[in-house]
Amino acid sequence: MLASVFIVMGSLILIVGVIVFNGAPSLSLQILTQTSEGGFYLGAGGGFLNAIVGSLLLALPATGLAFIIGIAIALYLQKDFLNPSIANFIRICLDILWGVPSVVYGVFCLTIMIAIGMTGGSVLFGIIALTLLEIPIITRSIDESIKMVPAGLKETAYSLGSTKVETAMKVVRRQAMPGIIAGVLLGFGRGIGDAASILLTVGDSNYFPTSLSDQTAALPTMILNLVSMPDQVVQNKAYAVAFVLLMIVLLISIITRYLTKKSSKHIIK
């Protein structure tokens, strides 16, 4: 039993260690604050600020959209609004969507792109793919935390004469706040790190995207492109990119911890 713990912890520490020890040395201020120059993948200079910005521009709107959709669905799945058996059916659908590999969402967007004659890729379809990917994650996490809201609390709100929507928006939302924050940041983490759906939909570019139909670079796809190059020096840049991605994920999880702790002060136990 102890041996299996050692295997698990050892392999996971190994993963983090490899990225940190290979990525940190090749990181520099210059590589973080410049966009890639032409021929970046062939060993030219420049950094990957365009990929960082591209990733944020994809993941932030996607998370925003998925949050708005997710919280509406999660609040509506309460038995105050919807028959529990129908709600359970929707939950199964969402669980299936959660389990669907992200590459399927990529193919879905690619199909639409081919159908409307767009080639190469665009920010818009990247955002759509990520939104689709994040909706089930965010919705189900919020839903789980809304389930925990005590019925007595809602009944108190009803007995004071508030309507269903008022109860949902003011009482339930506030009580479920730690879960909502955790769910949204979980979705954001998945979105920013997901490569498969982005790979098929956004293409690549050395500049910042200026419109929704532009192609863009993103951190996960940049890692893939860098690794597929034969040059060792170029490959080393991949570790720097992976290090940045790992740091972002770590930062998200720290923020999640902090915000959940802070917001759980306001909930009624």
Partner: peptide, 13 residues
Amino acid sequence: VLAGVPSVVFGLC
């Protein structure tokens, strides 16, 4: 935290 690490990072390792 590790459950949230992107798959591309695992691939790289």
